[in-house]
């Protein structure tokens, strides 16, 4: 079937719209930093802390913030009741987070919508999964990263991270748009397989997720470095930006859970790739440069997961490992697939 060029242009227009809306969203998140209410930083640490506080209050047998007097069961009214807090609904949490966050989330959602439309129309224009070359791949992976990050932000109320992660999405998407734009086109026979949808989808999703994890890891390292400098007396405490960010422990947990989500997806992508390689090239694993680097990435993330369970490697060192994992992934995409000849040379760049 011929490529639908008109639909291809629609896709490009939506992508540019998404890029502009994302930029506004980044501005809104930045505005939250500059003018938002500072006390909300502590609110993000709602999760475990409050649960524990409630429990301790009960032990002390004095009034507890979440206490209600147990009457329904007709129990002893002198026993203070404490029940674990039921989390606020996502929408109410966004509304409670202030006007800048509301604007940022609304714009991010609109941007993601435009971005998703761009990806879908590109797929309709070329009658296949819209990740057949580097430009399409980066467009799709930033879309998955943005969706996943919106989910993380809502799930963990981590509004303060928006400016960093969405900012990175804007930069990468903008570079892809300007440097490696590729018009909609057909694929070489080697890519004409339904495994393209399975293998590359998994790799794209996992890359988007690992991208979010790496961004969280970098923020972790920045906060960690600041805290250590304060402890050593080299910097003054009370930095406004740091104060708004989630605590080190929360950043660590967020990044870990993000990798935990991405790792099985990556594993599945590698296995699907092996099945496809067996179908197309006659072997399921052949140490092709791109395969080798996918393996290296897998091993480095496996090392991160193990590092978290190893004394002396938790925290900062583990995050260096995790960021190294994303560096190997980015190296695979930007260097190995473009400059090293192998069976995966489909980038269509240059």
């Amino acid at each position: 079937m011929p490529v639908n060029l008109a639909l291809g242009h629609v896709s490009t227009d939506f992508l540019i719209a998404a890029l502009m809306i994302y930029s506004l969203a980044v501005l809104a998140f930045a505005g939250d930093f500059a003018f938002g209410r500072p006390k909300r930083g502590a609110e993000a640490s709602r999760t475990q802390v409050r649960a524990r506080a409630g429990a301790l209050a009960t032990v002390g047998a004095s009034g507890s913030p979440s206490a209600d007097s147990g009457t329904a069961g007709g129990g002893d009214a002198s026993v203070p009741t404490s029940m674990p807090p039921v989390p606020l609904s996502p929408l109410r949490a966004i509304m409670a987070a202030g006007p800048w966050v509301r604007a940022g989330m609304a714009l991010s959602s609109a941007g993601v919508l435009a971005h998703a439309i761009a990806v879908v129309t590109r797929g309709l224009a070329v009658h296949r999964a819209p990740w057949g070359n580097m430009y399409e791949f980066i467009t799709a992976l930033t879309c998955f990263a943005a969706i996943f990050f919106l989910w993380v932000m809502v799930r963990y109320r981590a509004w303060a991270l928006g400016v960093f992660v969405m900012g990175a999405v804007v930069v990468i998407l903008g570079l892809a748009e300007t440097l490696i734009y590729t018009a909609a086109g057909t694929l070489v026979p080697a890519l004409q397989s339904y495994w393209l949808s399975i293998h590359v989808t998994a790799m794209t999703v996992a890359t988007g997720v690992f991208f979010v994890a790496a961004a969280l890891g970098v923020i972790y390292l920045v906060v960690d470095r600041y805290n250590r400098r304060v402890a050593a007396g080299k910097a003054q405490g009370g930095n406004g930006i740091i104060a708004r960010l989630p605590s080190l422990e929360q950043l660590d947990r967020l990044a870990y859970r993000t990798v935990v989500f991405g790792f099985p997806v990556w594993t599945f992508g590698v296995i699907a790739g092996a099945i496809w390689a067996d179908e197309a090239w006659g072997r399921y694993w052949g140490w092709d440069p791109v395969e080798t680097w996918a393996f290296i990435t897998w091993v480095v993330y496996a090392a991160f997961l193990h590092a978290r369970a190893t004394a002396g490697w938790r925290g900062r060192r583990a995050h260096y490992v995790q960021i190294l994992g994303f560096v190997t992934l980015a190296f695979n995409i930007m260097v190995v697939q473009v400059f090293i000849t192998g069976m995966h040379s489909y980038a269509g760049v240059g």
Partner: peptide
């Protein structure tokens, strides 16, 4: 002995 010290806990009274 002291369940309140666990990371997650709840206390309530019942007429049972």
């Amino acid at each position: 002995r002291n369940i309140g010290r666990l990371p997650h806990s709840a206390t309530y009274a019942t007429s049972l």
